[in-house]
């Protein structure tokens, strides 16, 4: 369907070349777009992060939450390129994607832009520091440095 942007970060790259599977990538590839499946270890990409521009994280079913950990791990390792959630994206997960460091989603079924907007705007505050979403946790607001 194409990317729907959910982070405030500027787009680094348009979706050009098809993604290379992470398993193949680890064996040696100069691809700039990589696809990570739920069972794959995102940390295997860390040695080559500098050459990657876009990482697609696959959600074959939205109730499989492994992709959230993959995204945070990549961001925590300093990945600056695009992270895109691909597959079975449910409206109610969009805010969680954003909080775990996703820039965009590319859903199998279209989601009404109004729903996307409402979901992203719903929560004024969050309990956790995920670091990668740039939001201040409630505990940080309670105890300003």
């Amino acid at each position: 369907m194409g990317d729907v942007r959910i982070s405030g970060r500027p787009t680094l790259q348009r979706k050009a070349a098809p993604a290379v599977a992470a398993a193949c990538f680890a064996e040696g590839s100069n691809a700039a777009t990589v696809r990570v499946e739920p069972g794959e270890d995102a940390r295997a990409l860390l040695p080559q992060l500098e050459q990657i521009e876009r990482i697609e994280i696959s959600f074959p079913v939205w109730t499989d939450g492994r992709g959230y950990s993959s995204a945070r791990i990549l961001r925590e390792a300093g990945f600056e390129g695009d992270i895109v959630a691909v597959g079975d994206i449910a409206p109610d997960m969009i805010g969680h994607l954003q909080r775990c460091g996703f820039d965009a989603f590319d859903a199998n079924k279209p989601i009404d832009p109004e729903t996307v907007k409402a979901t992203l705007e719903r929560w004024d505050n969050v309990y956790q520091a995920t670091v990668v979403d740039g939001r201040q946790a409630i505990w940080a607001k309670r105890h300003p440095a």
């Binding site: 939205w62 109730t63 499989d64 939450g65 959230y68 950990s69 945070r72 997960m93 805010g95 969680h96 994607l97 909080r99 775990c100 929560w123 969050v126 309990y127 956790q128 995920t130 409630i138 505990w139």
Partner: peptide
């Protein structure tokens, strides 16, 4: 409780 409420990484374990 506060940490686990709506933790975005751990809602679809």
């Amino acid at each position: 409780r506060q940490w686990s409420s709506f933790h975005p990484e751990f809602l679809t374990l």
